[in-house]
Amino acid sequence: MQPLPDLIDDSLRVLFCGINPGLMSAETGHHFARPGNRFWPALHLSGFTPWQLAPAEQGALLTHRLGITNVVDRPSARADELTRAEYVAGGENLVAKVLRHQPEWLAVVGVTAYRDAFGERTAKIGKQDRLIGDTRVWILPNPSGLNAHYTLPKLAAAFAELERVS
């Protein structure tokens, strides 16, 4: 199965970074493609996009100076199938992408993925002290439907905090 191509350019306000592509995303070529994933609704409800994009409309993100990448390129059914080595290597690759494209913000979608990729065991949701070049870093909750700690309104509120400062 092919890795999912990044949606990225050099003038981004926010580069969103998922954990890794799910199988449906890898199959369709669209980020956050699983119907139960709440990334697209949260993005819209938070004010990042004027309408709720469908995964197939992901290219429209660039017109809003938004992009998407992943910590780990390898598709899997579940994130817990990834190894620590994949997260660490993914973190290194992510730093290289950020330094190359210099978005204003990197928003990692999933605190555990951030902790594993960057070795910051105590990181919490929200703005981080870490800078990658001049890029500021923010951690958002994982929008997967499996993340029961965050309802859609709570998830959208977390996204809206970043939208207000970006």
Score class of each variant (00 low, 15 high):
76 S>R: 13
81 E>M: 03
68 I>M: 15
84 R>V: 11
80 D>C: 06
58 Q>M: 13
56 A>H: 10
58 Q>R: 05
79 A>D: 07
57 E>D: 15
78 R>N: 14
84 R>W: 10
72 V>N: 12
68 I>Q: 06
66 L>Y: 11
58 Q>G: 10
55 P>Q: 09
71 V>K: 01
61 L>Q: 03
57 E>N: 03
79 A>F: 07
71 V>E: 00
70 N>W: 03
70 N>K: 02
71 V>G: 04
58 Q>K: 11
62 L>V: 07
77 A>E: 13
59 G>A: 09
83 T>Q: 08
57 E>T: 01
65 R>W: 03
70 N>P: 01
65 R>F: 02
71 V>H: 00
64 H>A: 15
82 L>E: 00
58 Q>S: 09
55 P>T: 06
64 H>E: 11
63 T>W: 05
67 G>I: 14
78 R>Y: 13
74 R>A: 15
72 V>H: 14
66 L>G: 09
59 G>T: 10
80 D>R: 08
59 G>I: 08
57 E>M: 13
60 A>W: 09
71 V>Y: 00
76 S>K: 10
73 D>G: 09
55 P>G: 08
73 D>M: 04
79 A>G: 10
57 E>R: 06
54 A>M: 13
69 T>E: 02
62 L>Q: 07
78 R>Q: 11
82 L>M: 01
58 Q>P: 04
67 G>A: 04
69 T>R: 06
58 Q>D: 12
80 D>W: 13
64 H>T: 03
60 A>R: 13
75 P>L: 00
76 S>I: 01
59 G>N: 12
69 T>F: 02
72 V>I: 15
59 G>R: 09
68 I>C: 15
70 N>A: 03
74 R>Y: 05
77 A>G: 08
78 R>I: 12
67 G>R: 02
74 R>K: 10
82 L>Y: 00
71 V>P: 00
60 A>C: 00
61 L>H: 07
66 L>F: 15
62 L>T: 13
57 E>H: 07
75 P>M: 01
74 R>Q: 14
58 Q>H: 12
56 A>Y: 05
56 A>Q: 11
80 D>P: 01
60 A>D: 07
72 V>F: 12
79 A>H: 04
70 N>Q: 06
